[in-house]
Design a protein around this nucleic acid. Sequence first.
RNA 1: GGUAUCGUGGCCGAGUGGCUAGGCACAGCUCUGCAAAAGCUGCUACAGCGGUUCGAAUCCGCUCGAUACCUCCA
Length: 501
Amino acid sequence: MSSLKIYNSAVREKEVFESIVPGHVGLYVCGPTVSGESHLGHARPYITFDVVYRYLTYLGYKVRYVRNITDAGHFEEEGREAEDKISKKAVLEMLEPMELVQKYTNLFHWAMDRFNTIPPSIEPTATGHIVEQIGMIEAIIAAGYAYEINGSVYFDVKKYAATHDYGKLSGRILEDLLNTTRELEGQEEKRNREDFALWKAAPPEHIMRWKSPWGEGFPGWHIECSAMATKYLGARFDIHGGGMDLQFPHHESEIAQSTICNGTAPVRYWMHNNMITINGRKMGKSYNNVVKLTELFSGDHPLLEKAYSPMTVRFFILQTQYRSTLDFSNEALLAAEKGLKRLMDAYAWLQETPRMPEAARVPAGGVETADASVARLLSELPDFMNDDFNTAKVLANMFELVPVINGIKDKSPDAALMSEETFESMRSTLKLYVEDILGLLPDGSGEGEKLKGVMQVLIGLRQQARANKDWVTSDAIRNQLAAQGILLKDEKDGAMSWTLA
RNA sequence: GGUAUCGUGGCCGAGUGGCUAGGCACAGCUCUGCAAAAGCUGCUACAGCGGUUCGAAUCCGCUCGAUACCUCCA
């Protein structure tokens, strides 16, 4: 079997994965900023790294998965007037930042649960680690790589770059940054334009504020990840993940801070997922093209023709290699929905069929025509996962198994013949990859025991009607069920199956 | 302007030198009371131009086009 290779953004090539501490993996993923609702674009990293987490766990590693919640900084609820922040209204009417944080954190957890992502081992919040962040900033100042001005603290990029490779991760050259940095407000007090904030003094109207050696203020964006990653994973850990748009400046700055503070580069393998685009454009607030997850699940958005289930979205994302851009459209999502249904229908039947049906059994002296190809398709799955988590190829192989499974199910005369061992191997391997590694769940929601019982009654009535060639009754049952969103199918041997539409 | 990535059939997308990706859509056939599903078959592409090579979607160069980042961003 092949060994796991990961594309390391820092060196721009695939490297064989070796954990720093044998048997253990430290995984850090930049989490959401909970000042607003998560959108489809946010779903990608969390689903991508959920699969990474699942696969590493399957490989036998004890993984500590840390994903932060960014709940400090500038906060403003969408649509809410900024003046609220400084109004002299009663406390209850004023914007309470933690109320927003709680609301959007809950919503985020709800969406992650629907996507069937496994919760991280630790989900630290920025506000819960102010002490650690202040400690880290003090260490950086003590080392001489940061300076305080007017209650704010900035990282001295120029000094750092003199002896370290600032820009290595993002492929940037410091001089270029000097010339191309945008004009922003509040930049005057920095020594150099490329310096970034470790701590910002809070203006009087700023509600989120903490005491620090430099006065009241709040931490810079980059320091929180460095502080929390260091605290829970150590000065040097295995994998750091996040969206490509975070590569610069966020991750570059993380490297600089942690390197000065801890005396070592923090991360062994950097992984960056690509963006989700709409009509070729990145999904983002500034482009005004975001589809929120709640809108996606409800279908309530001008760009959406219908609602799409969380599993459809998960499948849609996994059908693409995580380093490629993924273009969103109704057509693409619809295709994903249909494809997933086909895969999961075959999969569900296979899981309900513990023993190889007679019809597919190889007759005495017969040839196991399907054994070799099925075995090959199955044996390639770990190779694909080991090749930088190529879930697209894993799914492609699974789709090649679908006709094999359906052939057995339909007892078609030219059904693929295979040995009992191959059948069992197919069953257990698919369960492992579909459910445990890719995290795709059969859409069994709503199929309560009572509904199953009721369906059995209706199926019985319809079978009777069909036996009597009473097509009127037969069709009435099927059509009325369809109107209720239940699709009834006649199988080859007179049996019937049903699915919720 | 700087840096980087990408351009694959109607659509989405895998693929770093030779072998069918896969899904969806579409067409035909089989099965079927009808339907749906399923099975089989077909549709077979790599932006353009040069180069390297026995051989290139894959390597190199140029051109055209697109996107991302350049301190809000998954």
